[in-house]
Design a binder for these strands. Structure first.
Lengths: 213, 213
DNA sequence: GAATGTGAACTTTTTCACAGCG
DNA sequence: CGCTGTGAAAAAGTTCACATTC
């Protein structure tokens, strides 16, 4: 396969999980893993894992499995996280601040290089250890162009989300990680991924319903 | 349909989105909506929406659509958010604090009633406006039993996540909203929903790859 | 006339099962 | 022999299209 076939979105989502688990194996100096090992660790079937990886190439060795460090590199390459990406954030409320302090981004190759807010009371402040100074919204387009930022994190309140998204896209941002509980309408070609606490909680609540009956 | 047929997980996920959009329509005093209206607002097809809602009952009127306030109540009922649920949180780091300050939970019927952390430096403190005092881990099982808490939010670092999850489940928690970037292994019957920033970011990064080529 | 609910057709995704390589 | 990669089969999910109801 390996070639430019259409790759299912669920396969790409799982690729991130594989990467994480592979890193866990690497941390323990495991040289190789089989699709079965990975599957057990992640709660997936071995066939699923082989099929997913095969969309991208022939990475394994029959009788042996996958070489851990090699596969990590390959998966990073596929996901585009082998090189650092600059990321900006708009909306420095509670959540925005937590995200700015989150150390996990850098580990994955994402660097938060700027934060913006419209609130004059916050602009100019520096969010602790992160050393990023909050800038006014007006400076956003300039920075996006100067640094060719493609990835934006949107952590403003829901009513402002669409407007801010439009401004990000206009400035040149191509992918938005949306934390606002609202549906964003963007041009096709612009990617949006939404992190929605309401949906997660309500889904759990629904399952609770079923198990009580 | 309406009957105890197997309901696809994606349909349940979307139900949350429908609820949110319905609330937006209600806020504007819209009396009824058609599946088409909902679909346009959410970027889904009308057929999808009708099919999803039909899993749960006959809520609409041909020629008219769905009565907004009525459907809101029904969906809340289905999701179990028509009644308040107590929620606890373990792990009062950056993210935990942000979650404790998040006002959206209450709006959806979830009440954060307690927060726990193992760090003695944090225990005893009260997280601003939220008025919740952080308690030591040792008090967790007692509270879960006393209040029959079924839902737990897990916002501890990845290496501690499995252990804390086990302790939550042992205490009686049935559903876990997991923010740690790790796969949790729990008994079948215990529901886990993971919010995974790595997966979201890497997915966006992947899409960026494709559009650049 | 407008819009639902739903079987049937279609599409996507997962699982199976096995030939073939190391 | 163990384990991959992959067609073929099965399952799951989505869209179509229309009879039916308001």
């Amino acid at each position: 396969m390996a070639k430019s076939e259409h790759i299912p979105a669920p396969a790409v989502r799982r690729l991130s999980l594989y990467l994480r688990q592979l890193e866990a194996f690497a941390a323990v100096d495991r040289p190789t893993v089989s699709s079965r090992d990975l599957g057990e660790a992640l709660g997936l079937t071995d066939a699923q894992i082989r099929k997913d990886l095969a969309y991208f190439g022939h990475f394994g060795r029959p009788g042996v499995g996958y070489r851990v460090t090699e596969l990590i590199q390959r998966v990073r390459r596929i996901l585009g996280t082998d090189k650092k990406s600059d990321v900006l954030l708009v909306g420095v409320g509670n959540l925005g601040r937590a995200l700015l302090s989150y150390r996990g981004f850098a580990k994955q190759g994402f660097e938060l290089i700027a934060a913006f807010d419209k609130d004059r009371a916050i602009v100019g402040k520096t969010i602790n250890p992160g050393s990023i100074r909050v800038r006014p919204m007006s400076e956003m387009p300039k920075l996006v162009r100067a640094k060719s930022v493609r990835l934006g994190i949107l952590s403003v309140p829901a009513p402002a989300a669409q407007d801010v998204a439009d401004r990000m896209v206009k400035a040149g941002v191509r992918c938005i990680l949306n934390f606002a509980p609202t549906t964003l309408h963007v041009h096709p070609g612009i990617a949006v991924s939404s992190v929605d606490l309401a949906v997660h909680l309500e889904q759990l609540s629904f399952q609770l319903m079923g198990s009580t009956t």
